[in-house]
Amino acid sequence: MASEMQSSGMLTREQLFHLFERFATLTSQPDVKKRILDAVLDKQEAVAVTTTIQEEIFVEMGVDPRFGLSCLGKISTVYENDQDLVIQFYKFLAKEEMACDEAELGEEEFAEKMHYQQNIQEQQLEMLQHMRKFNLDDQSAILEKLHKQMENGNYESETSILSVEQMEEIIQRKVSPLFAVS
């Protein structure tokens, strides 16, 4: 006799990690990529296909798909203190977005977007490496300025970067003669 599907409570950390890993594996396979692309070519939303894939994984796990999807909407709240899980959740969301973009944008435009994203990430890494040379108060001032810049720029990727000169300018403005070290 088939067991009943889980439909109450909250998904466990292990269940969520399994979902994230299985989804990443499936969406990397050529037949699944083709499934998403075929849906887009058939004028369907790519996200509808990725949601269906998630539902299929939930069924494999013995979880009611509607319940499983509702749990995804609660992860940031229920697991707010579990940094590893929240990071994996955001990677999962990024993987879903990437699978959709790959199908919707076409090969050339998708490759351009990936190159652009990689370039932004490299610039962010350089910025963070340089920022680590400053003391914690200076780092806080830089992050505060970066946050304001991103907020004002509607969180577009380009707004997540400060140049070395901009960081040094933030620190120089922060320094007051009253707090200067002799």
Rank of each mutant, 00 (worst) to 15 (best):
Q129P: 01
N119D: 10
D101S: 06
E108S: 11
I170R: 06
K113T: 11
F67R: 05
L37C: 00
M114Y: 10
M167T: 07
L162E: 00
Y155N: 08
T50Y: 03
G73S: 09
Q88A: 10
D64P: 11
A141V: 03
A2T: 12
S8P: 02
I75F: 04
Y79G: 00
L178A: 05
K133V: 11
E112F: 15
K148I: 05
L16R: 01
Y79F: 01
E60H: 01
R22H: 04
V40W: 06
A111W: 12
P30F: 01
A39K: 05
H115F: 15
I120H: 05
E96S: 13
N119G: 07
T52H: 15
M167Y: 10
E45F: 14
E109M: 06
K133Q: 15
E21M: 04
A48D: 15
G68I: 04
E126N: 11
A46R: 00
E168D: 07
M5Y: 07
I75K: 03
E168R: 10
Y79N: 00
V181L: 13
N135E: 14
F134E: 05
E14W: 07
K91L: 04
Y90V: 08
L26N: 10
S140E: 15
Q149P: 03
E107V: 12
E112L: 15
L69A: 07
F23P: 01
A24Y: 08
S76D: 13
G106N: 07
L105M: 11
D101A: 05
C100D: 13
E122P: 00
S8F: 11
E96F: 03
K95P: 01
E126A: 11
R66G: 06
K133S: 15
I36D: 02
M61F: 00
E60T: 06
A111N: 09
A141F: 07
L178K: 03
E122W: 00
V78D: 02
M1K: 15
E108H: 12
Y116M: 14
M10N: 09
